[in-house]
Amino acid sequence: MTLRSLSVVIPCHNEEGAIAALIAETFAALSDLKLQIIVVDDGSEDNTAARVSELIETEPRLRLIRHALCSGQSAAIRSGVQAARHDWVATLDGDGQNPPDQIRALIARLASASAARVGLVQGQRLKRKDVASRQLASRLANALRNAVLHDGVTDSGCGLKLFRREAWLAMPFFDHIHRFTPALIRREGWEVLVCPVTHRARQAGRSNYSNLQRALVGAIDLLGVAWLIRRSGKPKAAPIQIESEAAFTLPSGALPDPVSHHQ
């Protein structure tokens, strides 16, 4: 499959120190594509929106959506996906820990597969640059999620994702849905691919979530997602296809081809 156009959605909350560099890096990494970048400022209390607005003055491919109040990462992603102009959407965390050039790895993974029924390419972080306590909490959460949902994904919380806009919008929406995207994309009958991606230290600011917050909301949401999948009444999707770390190489060179809105 040749992907020639893409919308990139970047949810942000208090990321004024990282967002300008992340936007510039994303444009540079995907310069050969017909590209749209949508930054969703989720109720930031700093100058995140101002930094983006400055860039919009000279960059027509950039769009800013502002949430008056902090509504959460899933709501921010939803606003961005709804505003996306292209059929395929990629997401990046606004803190800069997801290198934008890794979107090319996701695109290459899609191109290597029989993509007619692929709804999602899920990034899987290699050598995570988080503190040890956060990595341990993430491993435990992923193990529990996999035991209940059997989604075959070991890092569903990775912000690097590439998906069909229609597949994402077909999912039943709720807060924190971004942590269960692979399982719910499969619930809609689409196939899911997994692709190793690199990871780096936070570029600026601090994390917006504690390990305890993740654990508390995750336990409740997991039961809800398990119920949604059980009650879907839809045929099971094909097994998830995972690309091994040994086979992973970052592609180089060009690939074939209430809210307020700011254009």
Rank of each mutant, 00 (worst) to 15 (best):
M171A: 05
S74I: 07
L149G: 00
R134Q: 10
D257W: 07
Q213M: 13
D101I: 11
V89G: 03
E15R: 15
L55Q: 15
A215D: 07
S260N: 10
R128G: 13
R187N: 07
A246D: 13
L92R: 11
I229P: 01
P182N: 01
I56H: 00
S244P: 09
L149D: 07
E243L: 15
L106C: 01
Q203S: 15
A75P: 04
I65Y: 01
I65K: 02
Q82A: 11
A132T: 10
P256D: 10
G80A: 09
K161W: 00
T48W: 04
V153I: 14
R186D: 00
L162G: 09
V81C: 03
A29D: 01
A254K: 12
R164C: 05
A143V: 04
L120C: 07
Q241H: 09
D46R: 00
D87Y: 03
D130G: 01
R85M: 07
L106N: 06
K129G: 01
E188L: 05
G72T: 05
R145Q: 11
P256T: 11
C195T: 05
R109W: 01
A29C: 08
L144Q: 07
S5V: 00
A237I: 05
S112T: 04
Q203M: 15
W168M: 02
G72K: 05
A215S: 14
N208P: 07
S252M: 13
A90S: 12
E166I: 04
S114W: 01
V194G: 02
P196G: 07
Q73Y: 09
A237S: 12
E16K: 10
R186N: 02
R109L: 00
T26S: 13
F173A: 04
F248D: 14
R200N: 06
L3Q: 00
F174C: 03
S71A: 14
R200Q: 15
H176F: 03
R85W: 08
D46F: 04
P100K: 06
I37W: 12
L35E: 06
L222C: 10
T91P: 12
A49G: 15
G233Y: 00
P99K: 09
T91Y: 00
R202E: 13
A141Y: 02
S133M: 08
T58C: 01
